Computed example of a mutant assay.
Amino acid sequence: MTGSAWPELLDRVRSDIPALLADFLEELARLDGYAAGVVPHDDIERTAVGAFEIFLARLGDTDDAERSAQFSGELGRKRARQGMRIDQFMEGVRINFRVLWRALHRAAAPDLVDELVSNGERILGVVERYATEVQAAFLEESQLMAQQRRTARERALAKLFARDIDSASLAAAAELLGLRADATFELVALPGADDPRVIVTAQAWRGALLHVEGDVALLFREREGRSAAEPDGFLAQPGAHIAEVRGVDSLANAAALASALTRATGGAEPTSLREGFAQLLRPDFATLIAGFEHEVVGDWHAAPADERDRFTETVRAFVRSGSIQATADDLFVHRNTVFKRLRAFTRLTGLDLTVPRDAAIAMLALPLGPSGSAPAVSE
C-alpha cells in the first residue's frame, strides 16, 4: 500500500499533462516514421494523452483494466495498419516512458523524491506491462496483415493461371501483383512442388513469382528487356522453360504447355520447348500411327534391344547438332563410327537423318529425348 503522498505526486503529474504532451511531440517529431507524417498529428496527440492517463491510472491503482487493455490493443493494431515498423513504434512508446519519468521527477522535487524512489518497482511494472501489451497487439496485427497479403497474392496468382477468367479480373490480379499486363514474361515449370529446392530456387531468381498447381511449381518473371534466345540461368534445375510469354493473358497457356512438357520429358533436366517438342508431341503421334509403325520406322522393333540402345544414343546426339564430328565428340568415338551407325540406322528404318523430314519422323517416333524417354510406339 502507498501513503497519501503517492496519490499527491500522481495528481501533480496529471496537472502537468499539457507539458508532457509538448515534450513528447517535440521528441517524437525527430523519430523516423512519425516525422514522415505517416500518422496524423491529431491521432498522435490523442493517443499520447490516452497513454499518459493509463500510466497514471495504473500507477494509482484506479485503472479500468478492460478499457486500458482495449486502448493498448487498438493502438498497437492501428500503428501496424498505418505501416510503421516495429522498431519505430516501440521507440515512440519509449519516448512516452522517458517523458513520463521526467515529469515524475519534476513533480517529486523537492518534497516527494523519497516517495518516487520507493515506488520505482511499481513504475517499472506499469511500463513493462504497457510495452508488452502494445507490442503484442502490433505483432499480432502485422502477422494478420501479412497473412491477408499472402492470401490476396495467392488468389491473384491463381487468377492469372485460371483458364476461364474474364479480362477485368485478370487485369485486377496483375495490378495487385505489380505486373504490367503487356509485359513479356519467361516461365518455368519445376517437378516436385514439395521439393525444398523449389523455394530456394524461387528466392534465388530475382523478381520471380511462385505458383503451385498440383505437383508442379510454376515460376515466372518479366524478361526485363532480354531477348527470348538469351540464356540467363533462369532455369538451372530440371524443368521446362518457356522463354517468351507475351502478356499476362498468355501465362495460363504457357503454364499448361510447360507442365505438359515437364511431364512428357520426365523433368529430368532443364528443357526448352524447342528441345522437348518431340517428346511433347510423341503420344499423339503414337496414337495416330498405332498398328502402322512399320510404315514409319521400318524394322526398328525387330532389332535387338542393345542395338536399338546404341542407335538411340547416336541418333539423339546427331539430331541435336547435325554434325558428324560433334556427335563423335559427344560420344567419345571416332567419326567413322558415327558414319557406320547412321548408315546402319538408315538400312534398318529407312530413315536418312540428313533429310529433315526423316529426322523429324525419328524424333517423334523413337525414344530420342533427354534422359532416354520411353518410346512412344509399341514393340
Rank of each mutant, 00 (worst) to 15 (best):
L219V: 02
V297Y: 08
V127W: 12
H301L: 04
K78T: 10
R316L: 09
G291V: 03
T47C: 09
S373H: 09
G60R: 01
T262Q: 13
P370E: 05
H301C: 03
A189V: 04
L179T: 04
H241I: 00
W205C: 03
T132A: 15
G214V: 08
L235K: 04
D352G: 08
A171K: 11
A254N: 15
I165R: 01
T354S: 13
A69H: 14
I361V: 14
E140M: 05
E141D: 01
R98E: 13
A172Y: 13
R150L: 01
F311M: 04
Q143Y: 15
G92E: 02
L187R: 08
G50N: 09
E141Y: 03
S72H: 15
E8L: 13
R81Y: 04
L176P: 01
V297W: 13
R320V: 01
V297S: 03
A137G: 03
P283M: 03
A156K: 00
T262S: 14
S272L: 03
F277K: 05
R155V: 00
A189I: 04
Y34C: 09
I242G: 07
L170Q: 10
A146K: 01
E307T: 07
L210H: 10
A236D: 14
S272K: 02
K159P: 00
E115A: 15
P283N: 05
D232A: 14
R357K: 09
I289T: 10
A286R: 05
A136C: 08
D352K: 11
V127Y: 14
A302N: 11
R263H: 14
D309H: 06
S142C: 10
V117M: 14
R343W: 10
F185R: 05
V49A: 09
E154C: 00
M84N: 05
H241L: 13
L331F: 06
R197K: 14
A107D: 03
A174C: 04
G178L: 06
D63V: 11
L179P: 04
E91T: 10
V39D: 09
Y34K: 01
P231Q: 09
T265I: 06
L9Q: 07
E26Q: 12
R163F: 14
G291N: 12
L157N: 00
Q203P: 03
F285S: 05
V333K: 15
A243Y: 01
S371W: 06
V49D: 07
V212S: 01
T62F: 14
F97H: 08
L209Y: 09
E224R: 12
L187I: 06
G239D: 08
V188M: 15
A254H: 01
N336T: 09
E26R: 06
P283T: 04
F138D: 00
L288V: 14
A328C: 06
K340P: 00
R246H: 10
E128M: 12
A204I: 05
G83F: 08
R67Q: 12
R129S: 12
G37R: 05
D164L: 09
L56M: 04
V297Q: 06
D306K: 02
L9Y: 02
T312D: 15
D164A: 14
E53T: 07
A365R: 10
I361H: 15
S68N: 12
R129H: 13
P270G: 07
D299E: 10
L116W: 06
V49C: 06
M145R: 00
A22P: 01
A5H: 10
P110C: 12
I242R: 06
H301K: 08
L351K: 08
A80D: 00
F24R: 03
L177A: 02
A344E: 10
P375G: 15
A236Y: 12
